[in-house]
Design a protein around this nucleic acid. Structure first.
Lengths: 194, 194
DNA sequence: CACAAGCTAGAACGAACGCTCTATTCAGTA
DNA sequence: TACTGAATAGAGCGTTCGTTCTAGCTTGTG
């Protein structure tokens, strides 16, 4: 198969789209800007994504889904105790957010909010990503001995709270909301442990 | 006589902008669309907001800030026990979200995410709104006898979690994330009560 | 070498964008 | 009645948007 130099054009386009949509949202990101950032041409973008901006948006969300899932997996498996693992995870998110100058928050929430009820394909990709992340947390809790129901409920709140704390931290340009949320989640998880 | 007919043009414009930006985000909302929805003309919009779209965005965020603060105040004062009050608040958010057909989530988060690092005026208005909401929750907790430090930390997590759960619920088109988050927040608050 | 398929390249289109501008109407005061 | 500033009205500016289109370039296989 044709091997293009380095990551390949399609991959570069998806990566650029994902990053730009994370920072500027879906509507705020132009296809020409994506092409330029990816060092590709407009023709290439429409070659790989004949469905246009929506199809590119779906690919960007799915890419972000995978990347964030890896970050989550790594953070969660760093500690055996799930409560401590969540604290570590929140800390890692805080570090990444600060190091980016408070611009790289959740990679899909901006896109999610802009497209609800107006782009079903993207909506579904976003829903699948959230479900995917919840499953990772629920799995970690289940492995640590939490009963199925508790694990599922806690996973919902863990992801929701991390999501909200990341937004809050980004807006306040402060790590505090993520740190505090991490501690509170640990406390909540521990309260189910007995 | 000196009373303007109906809500007045400026008020109608701000309300329309706030609603549209809540649903479509900042970039996804056009000034002409705002004018049309508000039954105003382009000239009127630029008469009241000579600073253009950014100034209108700031006004829309501030309007949403006030509206959400009222909702928060009402929900929180419905119950004497702050833990139960948070549950009631989450339930109210879930109800409103469902009744809107899953489109009316947090009124400013889409705008917040799209404009971070690119529109300082809007960024500041968003930060002030979040701070405002946190203060309301912290005040409720303080009145219920929680020490200052606990009240402030809990308020951070309560707002963050409600924010994240609302996003999660919107994406999943389900009340469950908000309901579960409400119960977990109550449990967390109670754990500080002893 | 030939040739199709995969990929790159960018000019061009109509529509929509934010915004400016001039003209007109309206309300209150002198 | 005449004047004035606020408010309304919308045509039109230059730009950018998503998208289409027709070429040309590369590359693996016959």
């Amino acid at each position: 198969m044709a091997n293009t130099p380095q990551p390949g054009t399609r991959e570069r386009v998806v990566r650029a789209a994902s990053l730009l949509m994370q920072r500027q949202g879906y509507e705020g990101t132009g296809i020409k800007q994506v092409a330029q950032e990816a060092k590709a041409t407009l023709g290439s973008v429409y070659h790989f994504f004949p469905g246009g901006k929506q199809e590119l948006g779906v690919a960007a969300v799915q890419h972000a889904d995978q990347e964030f899932a890896e970050l989550l997996s790594t953070s969660l498996s760093a500690e055996a105790d799930p409560a401590k693992a969540v604290v570590a995870c929140a800390g890692e998110l805080a570090r990444l957010l600060r190091d980016s100058g408070w611009v790289d928050g959740c990679p899909i929430s901006a896109t999610a909010l802009e497209t609800t009820g107006r782009a079903p394909d993207i909506e579904q990709a976003v829903a699948e990503a959230f479900q995917h992340w919840r499953d990772l947390v629920a799995g970690t809790l289940r492995e640590a001995g939490f009963p199925e129901g508790d694990a599922r409920d806690l996973a919902i709140t863990v992801i929701s709270t991390l999501e909200g704390a990341e937004l809050t931290a980004q807006v306040a340009k402060s790590e505090t909301p993520l740190r505090v949320a991490g501690e509170h989640l640990a406390r909540l998880i521990d309260s189910y442990k007995r």
